[in-house]
Simulated scan of single mutants.
Amino acid sequence: MTDGTPPTAGAPEPAADPETPAAPAELTSLERTALYKSLGNPLRRRILDYLGRHGEANSTVLARELGESSGTTSYHLRKLAEQKLIEEIPEKSGGRERWWRSLPFSHTAPDPATMTTEEFEAARHLALLKIDIDTQLFRRAHEEYRGPDGWAHVQRHGTWLTRDELTAFMREYRALLDHYGHSRETAPEGARPVNMRFYAVAEPMGEWNGEPTGP
């Protein structure tokens, strides 16, 4: 499971891509558990979504836009900063007024079999939340499809791959996205935030229509 939600609108799926400092490559189980709980918190997701769309905000702006108290948004901003999902903007902050922006973010979850019970439950809760969000995006993609040159695209494919080939494909998929994609700050005129999702899953072990399904 890779999550880049914060960087893009609606995602941190942080985006985030959003390339500057990212979350630590190696996290402990406790750190991953805290991360999943943060990304699974509805208000923190809304804060990350707002920063992804608008670039920056302070607790007062977020309180007004999200219908919360500034004390509540200030608390959650500090927690997101502790996990390197956002950072303070020094040149705009002064006194009690602190401005924040999202940070690039990418994280690949470990094998669930290696997780502690608490970590697994936090990851499971986050996964269910993301499935709900992704289902809404899937429906929108179908409803807003206007042909192969439009803004909405849906494709389905099936093929045979070895595990090494699938892993290589995933690396190249990510490299292709990095090649064509832009951060909010460097996006050219006419660019819009685009939510992209990709999943791949092998058929179950055993026979299917008389043929082996492979590893």
Rank of each mutant, 00 (worst) to 15 (best):
M1P: 05
T2M: 06
T5Q: 05
T8G: 08
A9V: 11
G10F: 09
P12W: 02
A15W: 00
P18H: 06
T20K: 07
P21E: 04
P21G: 05
A22D: 09
A23W: 02
A34P: 00
L39F: 12
L39V: 10
G40F: 00
I47L: 02
L48E: 00
D49L: 01
L51I: 04
G55T: 00
N58G: 05
N58V: 04
S59T: 03
L62T: 00
E65T: 01
L66I: 01
L66G: 03
G67E: 06
S74I: 06
L80I: 05
E88A: 15
E91M: 06
K92T: 01
G94D: 11
G95D: 02
R98F: 07
R101S: 11
P104A: 04
F105M: 05
S106G: 09
T108C: 11
A109T: 02
P112E: 02
A113C: 05
E118T: 14
F120T: 02
A123K: 06
R140N: 08
Y145N: 09
P148G: 12
Q155T: 15
G158Q: 15
L161Q: 13
M170I: 12
E172S: 08
E172D: 11
R174M: 09
D178M: 09
H179M: 10
H179N: 10
H179I: 09
Y180F: 10
G181M: 05
T186E: 12
A187V: 06
E189K: 10
G190L: 06
A191E: 07
P193L: 04
N195R: 12
R197G: 07
F198V: 13
A202Y: 04
E203G: 11
E207R: 07
W208D: 08
